[in-house]
Nucleic acid binder design. Structure first.
Lengths: 238, 238
DNA sequence: ATAATAGTGTCTTTTAGACAATATGTA
DNA sequence: TACATATTGTCTAAAAGACACTATTAT
């Protein structure tokens, strides 16, 4: 019967983004160093085998890892893609479905989780620039680059960067989130018009903004599920 | 060790689109009727188990199915997403990675392939409207809907519908491809400006267009690999 | 000449970018 | 009051939509 094919290994990896000190960071974990372990002690994206007896679905598996590693339970989470071939894992033909998540800055608390043997798995937020210099395990560099491309691409025409902010937030903070993702300055007036016209924000009081300056209008997202799509890209992206 | 987890089943499905008689069609195959077969005799997307001994990668597996079922070897092919949980297949926890392909109209020749037992697997191009009425096997209706949403979505701001056409083609034919995908008429002048400004076409002679009418400029794609991204969406999509 | 379809031009509308000007809070 | 930052306004530019107009070919 067809279901008697040899089954490939199945894993889930998660690219978790957060903004720290005005720079994008990504969560990396260090692989164990034991004998027989692939890529011992290399840094890698958090992930692991799908546990058929525990995970109801692929996305449930991703959420489990998100909670275990970053302590967040419902950030923005989207499937990024699936990589599968006979060579990406020395243990055999292996499929990984990758997700990416945007973790609001304040919630980005680290959790050094004990692994199966009770040892602490080293875990840290790494600036994108540094992470791309690392020799990551498996094809995780390629997956990370795909995640960055997806995030940057969607930032050009959706409200996606808003999910990097804890609520409520101000328009200047939102603009800063965009600038962190896109790595270029945006015009203040055009930015504000665009955001307010898109109808995805609702007002939520005012907040002081420090050091003898005017208070700012605070906003919340109308929906934390999906970003809204703008009718046009930012111009300098062309 | 971690690789001793029970492995889920792994399959690949392909949503093949083509344009026939000014309507989008999708390729469906009929599932076998034998005892123990899930969804016997239901129509389904072409697909099947990843063959670890034969397929170098997931995309190679998708290409194999594309060649076997529709007889095309290098149409536009893009990963759509991956569905995986314990309930979508009665045979067990099953992951499927779905691809979608745009098959140029003239190449859409059907191949009734013999299956393992030598019987012919019923295969047909079905108009989208009809396909969505069918009670498809597994979660193939959901996958099909995701593919349609992706195709329509990308048609709003990329040159994707061009991959439905055999080369060379004319601008009016390209406009028709867009109208078939988007299911709404587009303005001729705005459409032409947009396409020509995007620099993804190169001229390739002229072609008569029949019945006492002016000949049309023919074009080819500069690249059949990737569609180009326009700086703005079609307006009526807002 | 006529019909049919390809291709162009013009005007308006929308939205972004540049950047100056105004508003409002704290020290 | 002075300063810092939020917020608004004005002008220009780019691109799309509407739609009328011109061009070219077969009969």
């Amino acid at each position: 019967m067809s279901s008697n094919f040899e089954r490939p290994l199945a894993t889930v990896d998660v690219v978790m983004f957060t903004a720290i000190a005005r720079r994008l960071h990504v969560l990396l974990v260090q692989r164990p160093g034991g004998a027989g372990e692939p890529y011992p002690e290399r840094w890698a994206l958090p992930g692991g085998f799908v546990d058929v007896s525990q995970d109801a679905s692929l996305v449930a598996c991703a959420k489990r890892k998100l909670l275990a590693k970053a302590g967040v339970s419902s950030p923005y989470l989207e499937q990024l893609g699936t990589w599968g071939d006979g060579k990406r894992d020395p243990r055999g033909w292996c499929i990984t479905t990758a997700y990416y998540a945007l973790v609001p800055t304040s919630e980005a608390s680290l959790r050094g989780e004990p692994d199966g043997a009770g040892a602490l798995v080293p875990t840290r937020w790494v600036a994108l620039q540094e992470a791309l210099k690392e020799r990551l395990a498996f094809d995780h560099r390629e997956i990370l680059q795909a995640a960055i491309a997806r995030l940057r691409g969607k930032a050009e025409y959706t409200s996606l960067p808003a999910f990097l902010l804890p609520e409520p937030f101000t328009l200047p903070q939102l603009q800063q989130a965009y600038e962190i993702v896109l790595e270029r300055p945006l015009d203040k007036s055009a930015f504000r018009k665009r955001m307010l016209d898109a109808q995805f924000l609702k007002e939520d009081g005012e907040v002081p903004v420090g050091a003898g300056a005017r208070t700012a209008q605070a906003y919340r997202l109308r929906s934390r599920r999906e970003p809204v799509v703008f009718p046009r890209m930012f111009r300098s992206a062309e």
